[in-house]
Protein backbone atom coordinates (compact mmCIF):
# COMPACT_ATOMS: atom_id res chain seq x y z
CA UNK A 1 0.00 0.00 0.00
CA UNK A 2 2.64 2.44 1.04
CA UNK A 3 4.68 1.60 -2.04
CA UNK A 4 1.67 2.37 -4.19
CA UNK A 5 1.19 5.69 -2.46
CA UNK A 6 4.82 6.61 -2.98
CA UNK A 7 4.54 5.89 -6.67
CA UNK A 8 1.52 8.08 -6.94
CA UNK A 9 3.45 10.88 -5.35
CA UNK A 10 6.39 10.35 -7.67
CA UNK A 11 4.13 10.49 -10.74
CA UNK A 12 2.68 13.80 -9.61
CA UNK A 13 6.07 15.42 -9.89
CA UNK A 14 4.86 16.21 -13.41
CA UNK A 15 1.26 17.32 -12.84
CA UNK A 16 0.55 18.36 -16.45
CA UNK A 17 1.62 15.01 -17.80
CA UNK A 18 -0.26 13.10 -15.11
CA UNK A 19 -3.40 15.08 -15.90
CA UNK A 20 -3.03 14.35 -19.61
CA UNK A 21 -2.51 10.66 -18.91
CA UNK A 22 -5.64 10.52 -16.79
CA UNK A 23 -7.55 12.32 -19.53
CA UNK A 24 -6.10 9.93 -22.10
CA UNK A 25 -7.17 6.97 -19.98
CA UNK A 26 -10.69 8.36 -19.70
CA UNK A 27 -10.86 9.06 -23.43
CA UNK A 28 -9.41 5.68 -24.44
CA UNK A 29 -12.09 3.95 -22.48
CA UNK A 30 -14.79 6.32 -23.60
CA UNK A 31 -13.79 5.44 -27.16
CA UNK A 32 -14.52 1.78 -26.49
CA UNK A 33 -18.05 2.66 -25.55
CA UNK A 34 -18.21 5.18 -28.42
CA UNK A 35 -17.53 2.27 -30.75
CA UNK A 36 -20.45 0.38 -29.24
CA UNK A 37 -22.58 3.48 -29.60
CA UNK A 38 -21.59 3.78 -33.30
CA UNK A 39 -22.52 0.13 -33.82
CA UNK A 40 -25.91 0.58 -32.19
CA UNK A 41 -26.51 3.68 -34.32
CA UNK A 42 -26.82 1.17 -37.16
CA UNK A 43 -28.46 -1.86 -35.52
CA UNK A 44 -31.10 -2.63 -32.90
CA UNK A 45 -29.46 -5.80 -31.65
CA UNK A 46 -25.96 -7.23 -31.88
CA UNK A 47 -25.69 -11.00 -31.73
CA UNK A 48 -29.26 -11.02 -30.41
CA UNK A 49 -28.58 -8.56 -27.58
CA UNK A 50 -29.92 -5.02 -27.13
CA UNK A 51 -27.85 -1.96 -26.25
CA UNK A 52 -28.62 -2.05 -22.47
CA UNK A 53 -27.79 -5.76 -22.42
CA UNK A 54 -24.47 -5.18 -24.18
CA UNK A 55 -23.83 -2.31 -21.77
CA UNK A 56 -24.36 -4.71 -18.86
CA UNK A 57 -21.76 -7.06 -20.38
CA UNK A 58 -19.43 -4.17 -21.15
CA UNK A 59 -19.80 -2.64 -17.69
CA UNK A 60 -19.22 -5.84 -15.75
CA UNK A 61 -16.26 -6.88 -17.92
CA UNK A 62 -14.80 -3.39 -17.71
CA UNK A 63 -15.22 -3.21 -13.95
CA UNK A 64 -13.65 -6.64 -13.36
CA UNK A 65 -10.82 -5.99 -15.78
CA UNK A 66 -10.30 -2.41 -14.67
CA UNK A 67 -9.92 -3.40 -11.01
CA UNK A 68 -7.57 -6.26 -11.87
CA UNK A 69 -5.56 -3.95 -14.11
CA UNK A 70 -5.46 -1.17 -11.52
CA UNK A 71 -4.13 -3.46 -8.79
CA UNK A 72 -2.12 -6.06 -10.69
CA UNK A 73 -1.78 -4.84 -14.29
CA UNK A 74 1.82 -3.87 -13.61
CA UNK A 75 2.88 -7.49 -13.43
CA UNK A 76 3.15 -7.33 -17.20
CA UNK A 77 6.31 -5.31 -16.62
CA UNK A 78 7.98 -8.41 -15.22
CA UNK A 79 10.02 -9.08 -18.34
CA UNK A 80 11.39 -5.54 -18.11
CA UNK A 81 12.47 -6.19 -14.52
CA UNK A 82 14.06 -9.47 -15.54
CA UNK A 83 15.97 -7.95 -18.45
CA UNK A 84 17.25 -4.98 -16.47
CA UNK A 85 18.22 -7.18 -13.53
CA UNK A 86 16.04 -5.28 -11.06
CA UNK A 87 14.10 -8.48 -10.36
CA UNK A 88 17.12 -9.59 -8.27
CA UNK A 89 16.44 -6.65 -5.99
CA UNK A 90 12.81 -7.68 -5.71
CA UNK A 91 13.82 -11.18 -4.66
CA UNK A 92 16.04 -10.09 -1.77
CA UNK A 93 13.17 -8.31 -0.01
CA UNK A 94 10.90 -9.95 2.54
CA UNK A 95 7.66 -9.22 0.66
CA UNK A 96 6.04 -11.37 -2.00
CA UNK A 97 7.65 -10.59 -5.37
CA UNK A 98 4.19 -10.62 -6.95
CA UNK A 99 3.01 -7.77 -4.74
CA UNK A 100 6.23 -5.84 -5.24
CA UNK A 101 6.06 -6.04 -9.03
CA UNK A 102 2.36 -5.15 -8.97
CA UNK A 103 2.79 -1.93 -7.00
CA UNK A 104 6.00 -0.81 -8.69
CA UNK A 105 5.19 2.37 -10.59
CA UNK A 106 1.60 2.10 -9.49
CA UNK A 107 -0.42 4.66 -11.39
CA UNK A 108 -3.86 6.02 -10.58
CA UNK A 109 -4.53 6.81 -14.22
CA UNK A 110 -5.86 3.31 -14.58
CA UNK A 111 -8.67 4.30 -12.31
CA UNK A 112 -10.20 6.00 -15.37
CA UNK A 113 -11.20 2.63 -16.75
CA UNK A 114 -12.87 1.49 -13.53
CA UNK A 115 -14.86 4.68 -13.23
CA UNK A 116 -15.94 4.64 -16.85
CA UNK A 117 -17.09 1.00 -16.64
CA UNK A 118 -18.98 1.77 -13.44
CA UNK A 119 -20.80 4.62 -15.18
CA UNK A 120 -21.77 2.39 -18.10
CA UNK A 121 -23.01 -0.29 -15.70
CA UNK A 122 -24.98 2.25 -13.70
CA UNK A 123 -26.66 3.44 -16.90
CA UNK A 124 -27.40 -0.08 -18.07
CA UNK A 125 -28.96 -1.61 -14.96
CA UNK A 126 -32.06 0.66 -14.63
CA UNK A 127 -32.95 0.01 -18.27
CA UNK A 128 -33.07 -3.74 -17.74
CA UNK A 129 -35.82 -4.08 -15.03
CA UNK A 130 -33.90 -6.70 -13.15
CA UNK A 131 -35.59 -8.45 -10.26
CA UNK A 132 -33.68 -8.98 -7.04
CA UNK A 133 -33.90 -12.73 -7.58
CA UNK A 134 -31.60 -12.32 -10.57
CA UNK A 135 -29.76 -9.07 -9.90
CA UNK A 136 -27.81 -10.56 -6.97
CA UNK A 137 -25.61 -12.25 -9.55
CA UNK A 138 -24.22 -8.90 -10.78
CA UNK A 139 -21.88 -8.24 -7.81
CA UNK A 140 -20.97 -11.94 -7.74
CA UNK A 141 -19.92 -11.85 -11.37
CA UNK A 142 -17.87 -8.70 -10.89
CA UNK A 143 -15.95 -10.33 -8.03
CA UNK A 144 -15.45 -13.59 -9.93
CA UNK A 145 -14.52 -11.71 -13.09
CA UNK A 146 -11.97 -9.73 -11.10
CA UNK A 147 -10.48 -12.96 -9.74
CA UNK A 148 -10.36 -14.48 -13.23
CA UNK A 149 -8.62 -11.44 -14.72
CA UNK A 150 -6.12 -11.33 -11.85
CA UNK A 151 -5.34 -14.98 -12.62
CA UNK A 152 -4.97 -14.19 -16.31
CA UNK A 153 -2.56 -11.36 -15.48
CA UNK A 154 -0.63 -13.75 -13.22
CA UNK A 155 -0.48 -16.40 -15.92
CA UNK A 156 0.70 -13.77 -18.39
CA UNK A 157 3.41 -12.74 -15.94
CA UNK A 158 4.45 -16.35 -15.32
CA UNK A 159 4.72 -16.76 -19.09
CA UNK A 160 7.27 -13.95 -19.11
CA UNK A 161 9.73 -16.07 -17.17
CA UNK A 162 9.76 -18.23 -20.31
CA UNK A 163 9.29 -15.58 -22.99
CA UNK A 164 11.34 -12.77 -21.53
CA UNK A 165 11.87 -11.15 -24.91
CA UNK A 166 8.24 -11.34 -25.98
CA UNK A 167 6.08 -9.90 -23.20
CA UNK A 168 3.47 -8.79 -25.69
CA UNK A 169 2.14 -12.35 -25.98
CA UNK A 170 0.50 -11.89 -22.60
CA UNK A 171 -1.47 -8.88 -23.92
CA UNK A 172 -3.37 -11.15 -26.29
CA UNK A 173 -4.88 -12.84 -23.23
CA UNK A 174 -5.22 -9.93 -20.81
CA UNK A 175 -6.33 -7.04 -23.01
CA UNK A 176 -7.67 -9.56 -25.53
CA UNK A 177 -9.75 -11.09 -22.75
CA UNK A 178 -11.18 -7.70 -21.94
CA UNK A 179 -12.01 -7.02 -25.60
CA UNK A 180 -13.62 -10.45 -25.91
CA UNK A 181 -15.88 -10.10 -22.89
CA UNK A 182 -17.12 -6.61 -23.82
CA UNK A 183 -19.42 -8.15 -26.42
CA UNK A 184 -21.95 -10.99 -26.19
CA UNK A 185 -20.11 -14.21 -26.92
CA UNK A 186 -22.93 -15.14 -29.31
CA UNK A 187 -21.19 -13.08 -32.00
CA UNK A 188 -18.07 -15.26 -31.90
CA UNK A 189 -17.54 -18.64 -33.54
CA UNK A 190 -18.61 -21.78 -31.65
CA UNK A 191 -15.08 -23.15 -31.25
CA UNK A 192 -13.82 -19.88 -29.82
CA UNK A 193 -16.67 -19.79 -27.28
CA UNK A 194 -16.06 -23.41 -26.24
CA UNK A 195 -12.37 -22.56 -25.89
CA UNK A 196 -13.05 -19.64 -23.56
CA UNK A 197 -15.54 -21.74 -21.62
CA UNK A 198 -13.57 -24.90 -21.02
CA UNK A 199 -9.89 -23.99 -21.58
CA UNK A 200 -9.29 -20.36 -20.55
CA UNK A 201 -12.53 -19.69 -18.68
CA UNK A 202 -13.16 -16.11 -19.80
CA UNK A 203 -16.80 -16.95 -20.50
CA UNK A 204 -17.29 -16.99 -16.71
CA UNK A 205 -16.16 -13.39 -16.32
CA UNK A 206 -19.59 -12.18 -17.37
CA UNK A 207 -21.16 -14.13 -20.21
CA UNK A 208 -22.43 -17.22 -18.38
CA UNK A 209 -23.65 -15.36 -15.26
CA UNK A 210 -25.17 -12.65 -17.48
CA UNK A 211 -27.26 -15.31 -19.23
CA UNK A 212 -28.74 -15.97 -15.78
CA UNK A 213 -29.21 -12.28 -14.96
CA UNK A 214 -30.92 -11.63 -18.29
CA UNK A 215 -32.75 -14.99 -18.20
CA UNK A 216 -31.61 -15.97 -21.69
CA UNK A 217 -30.98 -19.32 -23.33
CA UNK A 218 -27.40 -20.21 -24.15
CA UNK A 219 -27.06 -19.82 -27.94
CA UNK A 220 -24.69 -22.80 -27.95
CA UNK A 221 -26.98 -24.91 -25.76
CA UNK A 222 -24.30 -25.46 -23.09
CA UNK A 223 -25.52 -26.89 -19.74
CA UNK A 224 -27.63 -24.61 -17.59
CA UNK A 225 -25.54 -25.04 -14.42
CA UNK A 226 -22.54 -23.40 -16.08
CA UNK A 227 -24.08 -20.01 -15.39
CA UNK A 228 -23.51 -20.58 -11.66
CA UNK A 229 -20.00 -21.94 -12.15
CA UNK A 230 -18.10 -18.61 -12.12
CA UNK A 231 -16.75 -19.00 -8.55
CA UNK A 232 -15.53 -22.50 -9.38
CA UNK A 233 -13.88 -21.32 -12.60
CA UNK A 234 -12.24 -18.41 -10.77
CA UNK A 235 -10.94 -20.74 -8.05
CA UNK A 236 -9.53 -23.30 -10.49
CA UNK A 237 -7.86 -20.69 -12.65
CA UNK A 238 -6.48 -19.02 -9.55
CA UNK A 239 -4.85 -22.27 -8.41
CA UNK A 240 -3.34 -22.86 -11.84
CA UNK A 241 -2.04 -19.27 -11.97
CA UNK A 242 -0.48 -19.49 -8.50
CA UNK A 243 1.26 -22.75 -9.40
CA UNK A 244 2.53 -21.25 -12.67
CA UNK A 245 3.91 -18.19 -10.88
CA UNK A 246 5.76 -20.35 -8.34
CA UNK A 247 7.17 -22.52 -11.10
CA UNK A 248 8.29 -19.38 -12.91
CA UNK A 249 10.19 -18.08 -9.87
CA UNK A 250 11.94 -21.37 -9.37
CA UNK A 251 12.90 -21.40 -13.02
CA UNK A 252 14.18 -17.82 -12.89
CA UNK A 253 17.70 -17.33 -14.18
CA UNK A 254 19.19 -14.12 -13.09
CA UNK A 255 21.00 -12.22 -15.83
CA UNK A 256 24.54 -10.92 -16.03
CA UNK A 257 26.89 -10.35 -13.15
Amino acid sequence: MLLAWTWMRASYQYPLSAAMMTVASFVVNALDIAAIWVIFAHVERLGGFSLPEVMLLYGTAGLSFGLADLLFGNVDRLSGHIRSGSFDTVLIRPVSPFVQVAVDRFSVQRFGRVLQAAVVLALAVPQLDLTASRAWMVPVMIVCGFAIFVSVFTLGAALQFLLTDAPEVANAFTYGGNQLTQYPLSIYGGELVRGVTFVLPLAFVNWQPALFVLDRDDPLGLPHWLRFASPLAALLLGLVAAAAWRAGIRRYRSTGS
Binding site: S86, D88, T89, I92, R93, P94, V95, S96, S257
Partner: peptide, 17 residues
Protein backbone atom coordinates in the same frame (compact mmCIF):
# COMPACT_ATOMS: atom_id res chain seq x y z
CA UNK B 1 13.45 -16.56 0.69
CA UNK B 2 11.24 -14.02 2.42
CA UNK B 3 12.08 -15.26 5.92
CA UNK B 4 15.76 -15.12 5.04
CA UNK B 5 15.43 -11.60 3.64
CA UNK B 6 14.70 -10.33 7.18
CA UNK B 7 17.95 -11.79 8.50
CA UNK B 8 20.39 -10.80 5.78
CA UNK B 9 21.40 -7.57 4.11
CA UNK B 10 22.50 -7.51 0.48
CA UNK B 11 24.30 -4.80 -1.47
CA UNK B 12 25.09 -4.99 -5.18
CA UNK B 13 27.81 -2.55 -6.14
CA UNK B 14 26.68 -2.35 -9.73
CA UNK B 15 23.00 -2.05 -9.07
CA UNK B 16 21.07 -0.02 -6.57
CA UNK B 17 18.23 -1.44 -4.50
Amino acid sequence: RTALARRIGVVFGQRTT
